[in-house]
């Protein structure tokens, strides 16, 4: 017998407005599986950041007009191509990191639901380890402990900083993807496993044909949210000296050495991230709504 509440949420096709407490608990438990807070970007955030950049630039412009130096906007404009190039590097790192993290994480997540206790325990430990370690520490770890080149059969394979940073960022992604996969698989009702089993599907067939396809829809929103978080985390690579957008910004700022440039330049970096992450957050939100309604 189903409880009355469960029936209400489970069987109706109408959007159900959950009471706030339940909404909060659901979000908390979802954030726990995702391992990262959810991104809730809105269009006006971009407008605010853009306004800050422009206002600060204009104010500084007015201030600096007295001195015989090029205006703040001119300075910003001069450096935009370089900064955008740096930002594209961030995107490249995020793609690569997400790819590696997802591939490893999916394997790890499936291992977490293995029937073999040692495999299950091992993958659980690995997952928890990389989930609990701060991103920055993992980044340092990969930065300093991976060699700068590999020798494979006499060939020297260089291993530049940005590759190491990418690996460092993909480790927490891996752990979070692993939890997302495990959470999604466990959210599939056990009846699905039983039904497939009684139809003579093997465990592997059940997983590949029946369980995982149903999981994809559930995994997509947290996975995309994780991607946006990873994109924002790529700035951490600046701490270990990879020439991505934040590093370049700081170099430009120290080369220009004009304090009035600080606010517009940092604001511009925020704006770049916003313009990239906002559409992702929008789309994620849409997907999530669709999923909540159609349970």
């Amino acid at each position: 017998m189903r409880a009355a509440g469960e029936r209400l949420y489970g069987t109706t096709d109408l959007p159900v407005l959950l009471p706030p407490g339940e909404r909060l608990l659901r979000r908390a438990s979802r954030e726990r599986t995702d391992g990262v807070p959810r991104l809730t970007l809105k269009a006006w955030h971009g407008a605010v950041i853009a306004a800050v950049v422009l206002l600060a630039a204009a104010a500084a412009q007015a201030q600096g007009a007295a001195e015989a130096r090029p205006g703040v906007l001119t300075a910003l404009w001069k450096w935009v191509p370089l900064l955008v190039e740096g930002f594209l590097f961030n995107i490249a790192i995020s793609f690569l990191g997400m790819g590696i993290g997802t591939a490893l994480g999916t394997v790890l997540g499936v291992m977490q639901i293995s029937l073999l206790p040692p495999v299950r325990a091992g993958s659980w430990i690995v997952t928890q380890f990389f989930r609990n370690a701060p991103w920055l520490v993992l980044l340092f770890f990969c930065m300093f402990l991976l060699p700068f080149e590999f020798r494979v059969m006499g060939f020297v394979v260089p291993f530049p900083d940005w590759v190491k940073a990418t690996l460092g960022l993909s480790l927490p992604v891996m752990a979070n993807v692993s939890e997302i996969v495990r959470g999604a698989v466990q959210s599939i009702p056990s009846g699905q496993w039983e039904a497939a089993e009684s139809l003579a599907f093997s465990r592997r067939q059940t997983l590949v044909q029946i369980i995982l396809p149903q999981c994809i829809k559930r995994m997509l929103p947290p996975w995309m949210n994780l991607y946006a978080i990873l994109t924002m985390a790529t700035v951490l690579a600046s701490v270990v000296g990879v020439s991505e957008v934040m590093t370049l910004t700081q170099r430009v700022l120290s080369a220009e050495s004009r304090p009035e440039l600080l606010v517009p330049f940092y604001g511009f970096v925020l704006l770049l991230f916003f313009m990239y992450c906002y559409p992702i957050a929008r789309f994620t939100h849409k997907l999530e709504l669709r999923y909540v309604v159609k349970l």
Partner: peptide
């Protein structure tokens, strides 16, 4: 042995016909 459950346990990502066809094709 065929089994039918209280909660139906249909595979929600497949149509009715696909649900019926799946096991004979993939298992048998």
């Amino acid at each position: 042995v065929g089994m039918v459950f209280q909660q139906y346990n249909l595979f929600p990502h497949k149509t009715a016909l696909q649900n019926v066809m799946m096991a004979p094709i993939q298992v048998l």
